[in-house]
Write a protein that binds this DNA or RNA. Structure first.
Length: 731
DNA sequence: CTCAATACCTTTTTT
DNA sequence: AGGTATTGAG
């Protein structure tokens, strides 16, 4: 016990040992957030205030959930496996499996990932003969998901115009299709769980009485539905006070300054709402930072202060000020990359471990130049956030066969593999199947089975294949089922013949290994009188695992390599040395976000997250020109650079890099723009406009009196100006 | 049905 | 630029 609480600072200790009450913990970057969360759980359990089954701990990512579980296992001598620790989606899946009947689902219900969902929507539109130009599938998917995340069903959705009312109809059709097929998308997992809890009083009371303490990580990232779900479980959401047991204590940990997912529905407002609705007397702030040197924190604090409506927080450290923040300007993205790689070479020679160096960027497209340069110099690197294991096409194909075995009504799976590997069932045949399925209001599989009158037809052969596979794998263990299916479906043969198929075959073998290593978690031993609930068995469980946990990115995990990732992907991580690259107006802050204050503030939070990743040394780099969408763009430095106190910064300009500004290189030089003269102004030149201020000429058009120039005024936007009228002076 | 050419798009992303 | 998605020819 005393061990448990040792080494906690006063606010951490206060948070961990808070009496049974609702609480909001404002945990700054690097302030020991996960530690507080796990120690709180361990403290509650070890002091006998709650049993392990009375705890519900929610995170957003599997990684965070796993880490919490691992740390807890180290703190407590109990088995954490039966505990409800997991992601929102993982826990809802568990809940729905246990109560599938009440939720109106089969025990075998499948989970659609985003790609499956998009495919399902495309199929729906095709079936209904809807012009997908007018109703773009992606847009419709977003429309549907946004509604679900607000807790709004098609029946309640408001339509203020004809277009939207049609989209609402399509939403309803989509709901119907999913229900028919026995599939559930990500948002549906949450909404179903929420609705079931809300309308089923005994069930709600059961869970409300069971969970005494609900702990939430990254609370600033919750959307409305997730917050509503939490409130319901805590006994606050159903209007009347219907919690005989008194309801649970909600312990939310978050940082409004690190909210960077508003674009996908996260509501920072939930933090304010939580304070108000749960009548929180106070907010505990964890402001002591154990990660970064002082200069880095000062920079972060100065930056984030520009945002309005914050809950407010100032990070500090006992570590010294450390080094100044290095700022580098290159004349092109290539020069920027070259500088970075040279600098890394120097660091590595001085003994810095490569995996302690991170290159961060705003958008994925920026990684290419960096990768190229690293590759040229022979520095090992690892790009995070690529294609994940269960997202690979060969894996998705194999899983689709598996899904079809588990649930023949899964049309998404059917459509995916009915002609893969090709077996002569083309567009025509599939349309016929779709027509038949619609007429009989049944699945593609059923339509195919009843339509396969001609025994020799391709469709009949496909059905026969699936049927015999199902029969012969019925009692086999999962890995063997998959092995058999890869063989019999012709997948193996197909990739064997493909010249690039070697990797894919290896991945398929890896899938078999994954199945062999997969531990079917049926929710653990029955707890306090709950019956062990049938959950669909190991097959459904493995498929859910594949959808919910797409698998860590790539191999090369343990390699000592430079780490490359977007700023978003870097959240929660830390490195000795961090390069924030591409700090240019329009890129970071991104042009699509810089127009409104809300957008700019989210970008600033993103920058805040980036800055606070660094432990010892921080580099901020930007370039004057950058290849974007196949065109050279002329860029102004990011406004965020100006928001940092100058005394913390040190500009580095290598002799080589600063020279060309005076004496432009020939056009053949790496990335140096071709100057196109127009009335004495040329591309790339800085200019000043009386109204728009400072800008850079991006392109020119025409000549003489008709000449126009396009100027990037940074936050002022991109403007076309006629030279004859616009008062532009070189700056 | 398969392959090749062409149109299109492009912030961030977990589940 | 570069990748994907859809369309058109064989």
């Amino acid at each position: 016990m005393s061990d448990l609480l040792a080494h906690l600072n006063p606010p951490q200790l206060a948070a961990v040992t808070l009496p049974a009450q609702h609480a909001l913990i404002l945990a700054g970057a690097g302030s020991g957030k996960t530690r507080v969360l796990t120690t709180r759980i361990a403290w509650l359990i070890s002091t006998g205030q709650v049993g392990a089954q009375g705890v519900l701990a929610v995170t957003f990512t599997n990684k965070a959930a796993k880490e919490m579980q691992a740390r807890l296992a180290a703190l407590l001598p109990i088995n954490t496996r039966g505990m409800w620790i997991g992601t929102f989606h993982g826990l809802c899946n568990r809940f729905l499996r246990a109560h599938h009947r009440e939720a109106g689902l089969s025990a075998q219900f499948q989970i659609l990932d985003s790609a499956d969902q998009l495919a399902a929507i495309k199929r729906l539109l095709k079936n209904l003969n809807i012009d997908d130009e007018k109703y773009p599938p992606r847009e419709l998917m977003h429309f549907i998901n946004a509604h679900k995340e607000q807790g709004i069903r098609a029946a309640q959705a408001e339509a203020y115009d004809a277009y939207t009312s049609r989209r609402v109809e399509l939403y309803a059709e989509y709901e119907g299709q999913c229900q028919r097929e026995g599939v559930v998308d990500f948002a549906e997992l949450l909404l179903r769980s929420y609705e079931l809890l809300q309308r089923n009083e005994p069930l709600r009371q059961h869970y409300q009485a069971r969970f005494r303490h609900i702990l939430v990580d990254e609370f600033q990232d919750t959307n409305r539905l997730q917050y509503a779900w939490l409130k319901l479980l805590a006994g606050r959401g159903s209007g009347k006070p219907d919690t005989p047991g008194g309801g649970a204590c909600l312990f939310a940990v978050g940082d409004d300054d690190q909210s960077i997912y508003a674009f996908r529905g996260a509501e920072i407002g939930n933090m304010h709402d939580l304070q108000r609705e749960f009548e929180l007397p106070e907010v505990i702030r964890l402001e002591q930072n154990y990660r970064s040197h002082g200069n880095i924190l000062d920079a972060a604090n100065a930056l984030i202060k520009q945002n309005r409506g914050r809950l407010g927080k100032n990070l500090w450290t006992e570590a010294g000020a450390g080094e100044p923040i290095r700022v580098f300007e290159g004349y092109s993205d290539i020069a920027e990359a070259r500088f970075i790689v040279e600098e890394i070479g120097e660091l590595v020679r001085n003994g810095v471990s490569r995996q302690q160096i991170a290159l961060l960027y705003r958008s994925n497209a920026q990684s290419r130049v960096l990768e190229h340069q690293l590759f040229t110099e022979g520095l090992p690197y690892r790009v995070h956030g690529g294609l994940r294991f269960f997202d690979r096409q060969e894996i998705k194909h194999a899983l689709a066969y598996l899904r079809l075995l588990a649930n023949p009504d899964d049309d998404t799976a059917f459509a995916r593999v009915v002609n893969f590997p090709t077996r002569g069932i083309g567009g025509r045949s599939i349309e016929a199947l779709q027509e038949a399925a619609r007429q009989t209001n049944s699945s593609l599989y059923n339509a195919a089975a009843s339509l396969a009158g001609k025994p020799g037809s391709a469709v009949a052969r496909f059905i026969a294949l699936i049927e015999s596979l199902r029969a012969e794998t019925k009692d086999l263990p999962l890995p063997e089922v998959i092995d058999r299916l890869i063989e019999r479906s012709g997948l193996r043969q197909h990739y064997l013949a493909e010249k690039e198929g070697q990797d894919r075959l290896e991945n398929l073998d890896e899938l078999i290994n994954a199945a062999a290593g997969f531990v079917h978690d049926d929710g653990g031993p029955a707890v306090d009188g709950e019956e062990a609930v049938p959950d669909g068995g190991p097959l459904a469980s493995f498929l859910a695992h594949a959808s919910l946990e797409a698998g860590e990115h790539q191999a090369g995990e343990g390699q000592d390599a430079i780490q490359l990732m977007t700023v978003h992907a870097a959240k929660g991580l830390e490195f000795d040395i961090v390069f924030i690259t591409g700090l240019e107006q329009g890129l970071f802050p991104h042009e699509n976000a810089a127009q409104e204050r809300e957008g700019l503030e989210e970008e600033r939070r993103l920058m805040y997250v980036a800055v606070t990743r660094a432990r010892k040394r921080l580099y901020l780099t930007h370039a004057q020109t950058r290849m974007l969408h196949g065109q050279t763009r002329y860029c102004l430095p990011s406004s965020f650079l100006e928001e940092l106190p100058v005394e913390l910064l040190r500009r580095i300009n290598r002799a080589v890099a600063s020279a060309p500004a005076a004496a432009p290189r020939p056009a053949a030089g790496a990335g140096w723009p071709k100057p196109a003269a127009t009335n004495g102004l040329r591309i790339g030149q800085n200019v000043r406009h009386t109204r728009f201020g400072l800008g850079v000429i991006v392109s020119t058009e025409g000549a003489g009196p008709e000449a126009r120039v396009q100027v990037n005024f940074g936050s002022g936007g991109m403007k076309w100006l006629a030279l004859e009228y616009a008062k532009l002076t070189p700056a």
